[in-house]
Amino acid sequence: MLSDALLEQLTTTPLFAVALTLTAYLIGMAIFRRLKQPTWLPAVLIAALLLAVFLLISGLHYTTYQQGAAWLSVLLGPATVALGMPLYQQFPRIRELWRPLVVCLPVSASLAVVYAVGIAWLMGLPDTVLASLAAKSVTAPIAIGITQQLGGSIPLLMGGLLITGVVAIAVVSLAAKWMKISDERLIGFALGLNGHAIGTVRAFEISPTAGAFASLGMSLTGIFTALLLPLAWHFIG
């Protein structure tokens, strides 16, 4: 839709990509609120869909957009570090629950891998696909490292992360209702453990306590999986 010359002019600085990202995010948030915050359609997915449609229509290449948007995504590092603050503020409540957390984490984080890879294997998917799906519940920067070690495909992993995050949010909210669980600590932990950053964002929408337990679940799952999955893969594979 936009002429090549205009696109080239606009993308000489990262500001066009930054403006696109902010616009898509703000519109995505507005639609999300208008739809009464559906758990099956998080704001980040609405915004990403809007942006993908714009890229398709305008003819702007994803890689060109991504290079500009890197000026924003670089903040993901300090933003992840920032999660250390709510984590610290919830230390007393985490300490109360240290025993269940310590038992649940290795079991749940292992099963998150085993269930998905097991089902994929039963359905006859090839080894490279299995390797790409194994780290699906781990936060992106760690999951990329794991997937490289296992010999999986990074784009496929990114798709797996998105689906896992969105499904985790929806299932946590449905299952919590069904199992009559309203404890924010438990819901937050399940969101972070299974739904990585997407689940953690959702947990902060619920409450700071849920958010802190999600940060804890996300970081511990990341560390546990990064340390043990490549080793386990080596022995089984």
Partner: peptide, 9 residues
């Protein structure tokens, strides 16, 4: 955080 993970999504 949600906006920062969006470009990757």
């Amino acid at each position: 955080l949600a906006m920062l993970i969006m470009p990757g999504v």
